[in-house]
Nucleic acid binder design. Structure first.
Length: 194
DNA sequence: TGCAAACCATAAC
DNA sequence: GTTATGGTTTGCA
């Protein structure tokens, strides 16, 4: 049985679908309806689900953690994502995206180099991200460090990056499955949109 | 700058 | 099988 929870935290609606403590899909939006619609659209077919008006303790902790991520904070909470049924390539892209630290961004092409495949394929994987904002697809931009696209609208993407400013000045490499992924300070992106 | 061609995993037919 | 479709990239005028 799939359990769905939605809650308003700090003026934003967050929603999750859980199954066996694992996150099937998540969302955020300015209205409860929009947040729930996203969840419902991404639910597997022919699976019963139930919408709970009040989150239980597990769901509360998860929603709280997602809110922290949304707010641009580092979170220590480990969120269990049900990604094993996704295409393998998509899983690799998600994993690489999760490796981007707060305060940094990388490009579609850079991820493609790290996990194989091409930049457009990476963009495709991002476009159907089931776990916003847990999988920080807002930290992936074009190779010239302009924004690229975003499901929730480019304004939302820009605001995310503003909240994640950390004052870093140098690019660096992070390790994903033994290969390196180059990441750049968010400031490098924001400069172009001042 | 701007445009065209190469790029590559998915989903839909 | 085949085709259409992107949240791209690169090269070249």
């Amino acid at each position: 049985m799939i359990e769905i929870y939605a809650q308003n935290l700090a003026n934003t609606w967050f929603a999750v679908a859980l199954c066996d403590q694992k996150i099937l899909t998540s969302s955020f939006a300015t209205s409860e309806k929009t947040a729930l619609n996203y969840i419902l659209n991404n639910l597997p077919f022919n699976t019963p689900f139930q919408l709970f008006p009040k989150p239980n303790p597990t769901a509360t902790a998860i929603l709280q953690a997602i809110k922290e991520i949304y707010a641009g904070k580092d979170t220590e909470v480990k969120l269990n994502l049900a990604s094993e049924d996704l295409p393998v390539y998509t899983q690799k892209v998600l994993k690489a995206t999760l490796a981007i630290p707060v305060g940094y961004v990388t490009s579609y092409g850079a991820i493609a180099v790290a996990v194989g495949g091409g930049a457009r394929a990476v963009g495709n994987a991002m476009a159907c991200n089931l776990f916003p904002p847990i999988v920080p697809c807002h930290r992936v931009v074009k190779s010239d460090l302009s924004l690229g696209g975003y499901g929730g609208g480019l304004g939302v993407k820009l605001e995310f990056l503003l909240r994640e400013k950390r004052g870093f000045t140098e690019p660096k490499d992070v390790s994903v499955d033994g290969v390196f992924l180059r990441v750049f300070p968010v400031e490098d992106v924001l400069r172009k949109y001042a």
